[in-house]
């Protein structure tokens, strides 16, 4: 009986979180005629038409490639800059550390919509409009407060004596960072990477503003702007959502163990 309640609760939580995604999946398999009708919840005559249409009628592969490149580059840059900054703020003799951290955090207080127009002017002025770089630079800057804060906390949790020991054992500060501190902060780095990647993958406003064509357009914008002649192509949109969610699911599952370690680090002394 207790067991049954337990599984029932788990099932309801899973349904609660995965429900929308499953609904979307069901929708993506429905033929056009069934799309706007309820019931049925499940497609009566499942079809892969929408998926086929995606890859033949739209430049979806190019769009996915855009997103992958923009997200990966933003993540990489955010990690490199963020990890170095976090290491400095956590372990080195930097003056006014607190002030710097608060300053970094304050940068993320401005809502994107408030700064999107000046940013657009800057991007246009630099000639970066409708290029990957427009988004890479923006995403890197906007994810930096997050990555600096998360990783600073991770570096702080590493006992200071390990850094001192590395210095005595003949490391320069940078060598100590690469050989000792970074491997030990790996769970934090991976957690940050996944969060930044997801942020970049899903970002809409800047992507909508800075891109113009399929040359640089990313997934959220592309899906929103799916061409529909007289109606919204719900089936295609659903199919596209499912396709672009897959990379994220793979990513999260691949690093699951490290992410859990990262999110719960400090809770239990290891």
């Amino acid at each position: 009986m207790k067991r049954a309640v337990f599984y029932l609760m788990i099932a309801s939580i899973v349904l609660w979180s995965a429900g929308p995604l499953l609904w979307q999946f069901a929708t993506s398999l429905k033929p056009d005629a069934e799309l706007t009708r309820l019931p049925p919840i499940l497609p009566l005559a499942p079809t892969f038409d929408h998926y086929r249409a995606l890859f033949t009628d739209t430049p979806l592969l190019r769009i996915i490639a855009n997103s992958a490149i923009v997200s990966s580059c933003s993540t990489a840059m955010s990690l490199v800059i963020g990890a170095l900054a976090a290491f400095g703020l956590a372990d080195l003799n930097v003056s006014a550390k607190k002030l710097v951290l608060i300053f970094v955090l304050s940068a993320s207080m401005f809502p994107p919509i408030a700064i999107v127009s000046p940013l657009y002017l800057i991007i246009r002025g630099l000639g970066l409009r409708d290029t990957w770089w427009a988004l890479i630079v923006t995403y890197t800057s906007f994810s930096l407060p997050l990555s600096v804060w998360i990783m600073t906390n991770f570096f702080r949790q590493i006992p200071e004596e390990l850094y001192l020991a590395a210095r005595v054992d003949g490391c320069s500060p940078f060598q100590a960072f690469i050989r000792i501190m970074l491997p030990l902060a790996a769970p934090g780095v991976v957690t940050t990477a996944v969060l930044v990647f997801i942020f970049s993958w899903n970002e809409f406003l800047f992507a909508l503003t800075f891109t113009a064509t399929a040359k640089s357009r990313t997934i959220p914008v592309a899906i929103a702007l799916f061409p529909g002649l007289h109606e919204v192509p719900w089936g295609d949109i659903a199919a596209a959502s499912i396709v672009v969610t897959i990379p994220l699911i793979i990513l999260v599952f691949a690093f699951q163990r490290l992410i859990i370690e990262g999110l719960t680090a400090g809770a239990v002394k290891g």
Binding site: P159, E161, L162, L164, A165, A166, R167, V168, D169, G170, C171, S172, I180, P183, L184
Partner: peptide, 20 residues
């Protein structure tokens, strides 16, 4: 001089072994 150039070795209270 940096610690490296001084050529000293140190044993810490917490041992400070590299866990990885």
């Amino acid at each position: 001089l940096s610690p490296k150039e001084r050529d000293v070795a140190m044993v810490f209270q917490s041992y400070a072994l590299y866990p990885h």
